[in-house]
Design a protein around this nucleic acid. Structure first.
Lengths: 230, 230
DNA sequence: AACACTATAATTAGGCC
DNA sequence: AGGCCTAATTATAGTGT
């Protein structure tokens, strides 16, 4: 007769943890690494299963950046920024013989609408531009932009103003991105990357920065930014 | 004596599925919704547990965009774009005397690479075409940008050219974003949102667009963009 | 489409290397 | 950091409403 006896448990197994800031540094790092890759994996699965375009960016507290993207991060970000949806994945169930074919019929209709919308936007922007801001934003005719001028007194600069400029720039950028799409579509050529790689990172001020002490209570789903302490 | 009898199973329970494109439309939509929120939840947990800044953007095949971000998407995106690490959460466990300092060791290496790459890009473009571009890119002194000019012949436009312009714009934008950070930090004021809200979304073409036929094999972790068939 | 259910598959916390 | 292990927790496929 065989005597079965319980082996001593080698591990305690998984334990439930509260979702709150991990205080143990090592523990935090390990968890960060594991969960980060877990999220990347899930993101990849989502993109495969559902043909979705997914982009994930994670900054560690140390300021390191990790990211995953399908088809790649830049594409997703740019689509988000520009408001232009990424090229739809072909749906095999449609029974179409040629998966690479562009469904032009449908496309043309929407394209015309897009163009019309573009025109409208242009008109709107021109109106707003009367405020003369655009000239300043997009830079003068020289080599240097005003905000690159060292002599500009930062303390005098109004944050709201800068925000406004940035917004305008964003607007211009959107137009460019949209235009790029148009050009690509009209040419029928799409380069390997949907957008040029961001030439890696111009870390102008990647300085110490600040601390804001938000921890567990941090904004869910796009919440606010707790003010920085003085 | 109580007679226990198994109730008929009401569900089959969870079943394993292959990670490949879901063919059933309804199934796909449900899965998309469930898994999407699953990822958002995990992202939120990661940010709380590890004090990480996380941004997730998901496009459905229909072109709808969903996102989650901590502290919010814009902040994360902008930090990514500008290469500026988000404000570090204070780490009590770290014995470092200056918790606000962002470790820059690695950055400088990457920065130099970035600069080199940028230079290379510039040179390449200059080879193909003559200079004089930059002036056009950043806009002339007039009210209208060249790409808004109706008379521009799209067919003649070189995609690479547009890409280059877009890249330059991106560059300008990065500078602006970085500057904004500086200004904010120097002022000691940080508005509720780290960046101005993206002024809605300019959905120029949220159209069917194109098809590229990548499915399950899609690029993992920043893979390339399978070329579109003609 | 969003919610409830539930059996089961997948993830993962806490070890240890 | 990364891999392996184990037990428990958690996510979720399939279903119903």
């Amino acid at each position: 007769m065989v005597i079965l006896r319980k082996l001593p448990k080698r591990t305690q197994g998984r334990k439930r943890i509260e979702i709150k800031k991990l205080e143990n540094l090592n523990n935090k790092q390990v968890t960060f690494s594991k969960r980060r890759s877990g999220i990347f994996k899930k993101a990849a699965e989502l993109s495969v299963l559902c043909g979705a375009e997914v982009g994930v960016i994670v900054f560690s507290t140390a300021g390191k950046v990790f990211c995953y993207g399908h088809p790649n991060v830049e594409t997703v970000l740019d689509c988000y920024r520009s408001g232009v949806a990424p090229p739809a994945v072909f749906d095999d169930t449609a029974g179409d013989q040629n998966p690479n074919r562009v469904p032009m019929a449908e496309f043309n209709k929407e394209y015309m609408e897009a163009i019309k919308e573009l025109e409208e936007q242009k008109r709107r922007v021109v109106e707003v531009k009367e405020e003369v801001r655009m000239k300043k934003v997009v830079g003068g005719c020289g080599e240097m932009f005003w905000w690159e001028d060292e002599s500009v007194d930062l303390d005098v600069l109004d944050v709201q103003e800068v925000e406004h400029y940035l917004m305008s720039l964003e607007d211009v950028r959107k137009k460019m991105a949209a235009r790029l799409h148009e050009v690509r579509i009209l040419n029928g050529t799409l380069t390997p990357r949907a957008l040029p790689p961001v030439p890696a990172v111009h870390r102008l001020c990647h300085m110490p920065m600040m601390t804001n002490g938000f921890g567990a209570q941090g904004g869910q789903f796009g919440g606010g930014y707790p003010g920085f302490g003085v």
